[in-house]
Design a protein around this nucleic acid. Structure first.
Lengths: 338, 338
DNA sequence: CTGTTAGCGCATTCAA
DNA sequence: TTGAATGCGCTAACAG
């Protein structure tokens, strides 16, 4: 650590500083930095490497991006990063992208379609190599401008690339579990209408109840945004109705947290009076009271698949579906083992 | 939406496409895009605007960044975005940055100092205009390379710009509240040693107990990472000790969630047998069971201040401190109003 | 008020 | 195996 050099360098070293220091041309520096496309003699390479270290040279990602027309970066747009599920997704993506040498540009659309669009435009202008988006609008189209894009929800337009969890089947499994517990009035605490994921989960709830010959009318449905507060408000409304449900399928963990708080406040015991199954299966479900039986999304798989879809040279299938699985805990009435 | 034009355009329009279409020079296009630095005649401006719309022109942020040496982007590095507090911070920052015309590059350091360093380097190579970081290492130094950086935690080096919540005072207030409830064995469930925020909260806990003449030995301290699982494990250990504490000050909401789960599992009632106050005051605290009395960080203020510190032309003070405030809920033994 | 032009740092073609 | 030279799209002198 003999860092006694004066080093009055005011601006970071560029490729030509390195070239000069190593006594080679700038092209050669590029060749060694990128391992190609031309071979470099061992001795020369060593000199360049030395010079790089000496000058603490770091390639300028922006210049590189301009030249290559791609930034070694991917974009992620979600409705609300503070939602535990999206947070976990962002984390997974940030780490995987980093390991693949990509930066992650994050856009929070704040549950606003206009803002979503603006965020997307902004990210695209930054020359991202690919965009991963949880969109608020299943019908949006032209927003991708040549940038490989993968949606993490069902789309109206089948031409758009998607990686989606099987929402319908997941919801179905969750509801069927409630049916198996002998519950008869199984409500849905869903996401806002129009949101692609929310709609599919609604249909799964519906289908399971139809198959079981149980009621699934509007009286059993309430909707809210995907956050704790929304879940709380909707649950209060739901539990105050004249004929109270004896179970609820909740379309996200954060909403379920709100519902749990509402149930406590109203003196409704979970799972005895009200069995609950939620969707997502994040840590929120694991550490709540009672712990939530949940349809768990394979976040790591989703992240990996989405990244591959965007970055892989070989074209993967346009639509990839991953499966959720039911993780039984206590909120449904099952006794947790151990 | 008469989108019937053939539009075989293969690459996005550039500034010179616009210039050609509008019959002006590229400079003029720049002047209208940037509203300066030279004035443009109204009529000319209108022609340019038309051409831009016609060609669906979007400025290339990367070229601009190369030229200007700044990317209209800020970087954020946190140990774990899936922690509700960091998620909320990221959300706040993403939205504010967006409104100011900046993109947000997110780096998750995954609680790993090496990775933190690598993420920082990566972000800097992307020419970010500023870096906001929650560092794992209070002593790190040279990592900033001319990029304005603000740390959201205390630093060993006073030359580094910081925006920090008053951790010591916050912890103190939280612990004093517990003392006021007549608790005598007030434990600390803290973050890992060496982490700047965790250490300050530890000292606050210590100081409050010292002032109150209460014990604050190692027997009352346990530490874990800032996540639910860590909090759970540490709490199990703590609550299994021969002389059990009658209160705990927890240094983050997510750890407190873990502690709450552990207490339930062990049959320790909160707040009766164990009063709890946590730090952060995110939605996690509001919707837990029981709701957590918490020392609440002013996330919006932190985000705004940090952004300003980085972007403002006028140099703000090198160190800015914001205050946390105690939000009383039920976990401490107070009866929540209403 | 508007046009010409020189780079920002890098990848790469073409020539040596 | 290496070097010289071009241009990615944009900004901002500088010159009209």
């Amino acid at each position: 650590m003999s860092d006694d050099s004066p080093q009055p360098r005011t601006r970071p070293a560029t490729r030509s500083d390195v070239a000069r220091a190593a006594g080679v041309s700038t092209a050669v520096v590029s060749y060694v930095v990128n391992n190609g496309p031309r071979p470099v003699a061992e001795a020369t390479r060593a000199r360049v490497l030395d010079a790089m270290k000496e000058l603490e040279y770091t390639p300028n990602a922006v210049a590189r991006a301009l030249r290559l027309r791609r930034a070694q970066a991917v974009g992620l747009v979600v409705p609300d990063v503070s939602n535990t599920y999206f947070g976990a997704l962002a984390r997974e993506l940030s780490n995987r992208a980093f390991e693949a040498g990509f930066a992650l540009l994050l856009g929070d659309s704040d549950n606003d379609i206009e803002r979503e669009r603006a965020q997307v435009d902004s990210l695209i202008s930054h020359q991202i190599d690919g965009l991963i988006i949880v969109s608020l609008d299943a019908g949006s189209d032209g927003e991708v401008g040549g940038t490989p894009t993968v949606y993490l929800d069902q789309r109206d337009q089948p031409s758009q690339r998607t990686v989606v969890v099987d929402n319908l089947r997941g919801a179905r499994i969750g509801v069927e579990h409630l049916v198996g517990h002998g519950r008869r009035r199984i409500a849905l605490l869903g996401g806002m209408e129009g949101s692609p994921g929310a709609d599919a989960r609604f249909r799964g709830w519906q289908a399971a109840l139809e198959d079981a010959g149980l009621p699934h009318g509007d009286g059993l449905v309430c909707r809210s945004e995907f956050n704790r507060h929304g879940g709380y408000e909707a649950a209060v409304a739901l539990l105050s109705r004249s004929e109270r449900p004896d179970a609820v399928f909740v379309s996200s963990d954060v909403q379920a947290l709100g519902l749990l708080a509402a149930a406590r406040r109203l003196g409704v015991s979970v799972p005895d009076e009200l069995a609950v199954v939620s969707f997502d299966g994040t840590d929120d479900a694991r550490y709540s009271d009672p712990p939530l039986t949940a349809v768990e999304q394979p976040i790591a798989e989703i992240a990996a698949t989405a990244l591959r879809a965007i970055l892989a040279p070989a074209e993967p299938p346009l639509h990839e579906t991953v499966q959720a699985r039911l993780v039984v805990r206590r909120s449904c009435g099952c006794v947790e083992p151990a």
